[in-house]
Design a protein around this nucleic acid. Structure first.
Length: 568
RNA sequence: UGGGCUGUCGUCAAGUGGUAAGACACAUGGUUUUGGUCCAUGCAUUCCCGGGUUCGAAUCCUGGCAGCCCAGCCA
């Protein structure tokens, strides 16, 4: 749990422990694994990490850290046809960014291929594995169904010597892909489908990103994974729920080979509302150029969220807050956004920027004059100090901050009404200038010189304080307003004739090019979050922004009470 | 003719036989030079449903129901 109040973290209220930590507590008490805790994060390098992986990373690294244990990063690279070094690089970058360190424990499943081969030979010698000549279709047919027992392969009783020789041939590339497989001899009538003589090796004449062309056979997940864990001395092998059926196999291989036996524990994967995390769907968005890459700021990938301006700390806090259980669940995006705002509220510098400008002329302010007024950089952190913002006769305010026929609950600027321009003056609107179509193009106001800095000496109050920028001093920038990629809460839901693409939000990206920001923001630094006061948090886009032409991504809005009132 | 897992507030989630934590969301008030933050208050007489055991059940037993996963030479 994340403590809202940092003071209270000193109190010794007992932390609620999730079921995995409860298991580990018992293991430590009983002396299992000599009190060690050693986990691993084992991604297959076949795609970019996303918010769902973030939970696994926080669980794997976080739990080990809680027990002064260790965590390995291990690439589970047993299928060369889907993998690429592009991914092994991006995965490392994303884990580091998230704030975790595997130190010198970076491993590859492929570095154990020789050992795996020896273990396979041992299995054959023990009569627990055989080379099978059934085709893909036949294997499927022989496996039976969920309700009917399978039948044994005709090769099931192939003599060990023969299997050994055939396996050697497979390894040497003597056979075509699909011609033979190595299978574990378990039980073709087993109620758990995973146990019906599962494959151990398949032939793949493929180039591997780590081992090159050395191998013509590659091990299957179920055979490899338990061995990887065992070799590395993992104590608790944490994975997601869909591997529950695989645990029997995990245990079977380790028992059959009489090896050190880590404990596999499954937990529910993280699903987020209004987004998709399936690799296939994410890839489709990239391939169809619906987004501009894996790091498009609307994507739930870690690189996308980073580009959008989500702080790593917020993602970590979110994952911890979501909790750990065995129940399939979908967390609302609102919780993630809450944590983003929570972190950014404390850290982001406040600035003034007008996204949808409306020109204001202060008719009683001298032409050609300007004043530099002091503004607070972050009220949550006084040590961030103050800066100067220029004020002059012509300004921009937000279009939403002016309304001609304002309802009662609208507190902002309207004809005859007085408001405060933050850190500047009280102004009152007198005239509205419209074009021939009746569109408001400019408003005329007067200011009260006595209210400099924003305080009225006579103590009179205003109902609104608004942000603004001086027209002649402002920097024109582009703002990319990022909204949910999907308008549907659950884009994975299945409806007649619809795919997840049909649930996309047509307005997930709005590019606004004529925005104006205060001079200080013209110096905005890459990778730094800023709050545009009263609007939201923004960050320079790492792809499209340049010093001449800054481009800001909207990370998240501020909560907006007026928007709610307006809806009613 | 199956096996594994799971059902507690809109969404997550504690609870492990002693009388339903917490967070987000939502609502209402207070503070405020951000309709932000912050603060306060409210928000499950009831835990998928039925039966049973017990002084006492979300927790134990029993019978249902619902959802997710498994029939890749993917992980």
């Amino acid at each position: 749990m994340v403590n809202k109040n940092t003071e209270s973290s000193f109190s010794e209220r007992p932390e609620k422990k999730d079921f995995i930590r409860q298991i580990i507590d018992k293991d430590i008490e009983s002396g299992k694994y000599d009190g060690r805790v050693h986990t691993r994060f084992p991604p297959e390098p076949n795609g970019y990490l996303h918010i769902g992986h973030a939970k696994a990373i926080v669980v794997d690294f976080g739990i080990a850290k809680d027990y002064n244990g260790l965590t390995n990063l291990r690439f589970d690279d047993t299928n060369p046809t889907t993998e690429d070094v592009e991914y092994v690089d991006s995965i490392q970058e994303d884990i580091k960014w998230l704030g975790y360190d595997w130190e010198d424990r970076l491993f590859y499943a492929s570095q154990y291929f020789d050992k795996f081969y020896e273990y396979a030979q041992m299995l054959i010698k023990k009569g627990l594995a055989y080379v099978c000549s059934l085709s893909l279709e036949e294997i499927k047919e022989y496996r039976g169904t969920v309700k009917e027992a399978g039948k044994p392969s005709p090769d099931r009783d192939r003599p060990a010597q023969e299997s050994l020789a055939l396996l050697e041939g497979m390894k040497n590339g003597d056979f075509a892909e699909g011609q033979y497989t190595l299978r574990a001899k378990i039980d073709m009538a087993h109620p758990n489908m995973k146990m019906r003589d599962p494959l151990i090796y398949r032939i793949r004449h493929a180039h591997h990103h780590q081992t090159g062309d050395k191998w013509h056979i590659y091990p299957m997940y179920d055979f490899a994974h338990c061995l990887e864990d065992s070799i590395e001395g993992i104590t608790h092998s944490l994975c997601t729920l869909e591997f529950q059926n695989n645990r029997a196999l995990y245990d079977w291989f380790l028992e059959a080979l009489d090896l050190y036996h880590p404990q596999q524990i499954e937990f529910a994967r993280l699903e987020l509302s209004h987004t998709v995390t399936s690799k296939r769907k994410l890839k489709e968005l990239v391939d169809k150029e619906i987004v501009d890459g894996w790091d498009d700021p609307r994507m739930p990938t870690l690189c996308g969220l980073r580009r959008k301006g989500y702080p790593a700390e917020a993602i970590r806090n979110f994952c911890e807050d979501v909790g750990l259980a065995k129940r399939n669940s979908t967390v609302e995006l609102a919780l993630l956004e809450y944590h983003v705002r929570q972190v950014l509220n404390k850290s982001a510098l406040r600035m003034m920027g007008v996204v949808n400008p409306l020109k204001v002329v202060i008719t009683n302010y001298p032409e050609g004059k300007d004043e530099w007024l002091e503004a607070v950089n972050n009220p949550e952190r006084p040590e961030d100090g103050t800066r100067l913002v220029p004020f002059s006769r012509e300004l921009y305010i937000e279009q939403d901050d002016f309304m001609e026929d304002a309802p009662k609950k609208f507190f902002r600027l309207s004809q005859g009404r007085e408001v405060r321009l933050r850190y500047a003056y009280f102004i009152t609107c007198h005239d509205i200038i419209k074009d021939e179509n009746g569109k408001i193009i400019e408003i005329h106001c007067s200011y009260d010189p006595e209210t400099k800095g924003g305080n009225a000496p006579d103590g009179r109050k205003v109902k609104a304080t608004m942000h603004w920028v001086s027209a002649q001093h402002a920097k024109q920038v582009e703002v990319r307003v990022l909204n949910n990629l999907f308008s549907e809460e659950n884009p994975n839901k299945k409806e007649e004739g619809k795919t997840f693409i049909d649930y996309m939000n047509p307005n997930s990206l709005e590019v606004i090019s004529n925005c104006f920001v205060e001079p200080e923001l013209a110096k905005a630094k890459a990778g730094v979050n800023y709050q545009f006061e009263r609007i939201g948090y923004f960050i320079l886009d790492s792809r499209y922004s340049s010093p001449e032409r800054p481009v800001f991504n909207r990370t998240v809005t501020l909560k907006d009470a007026w928007a709610k009132i307006k809806k009613k």
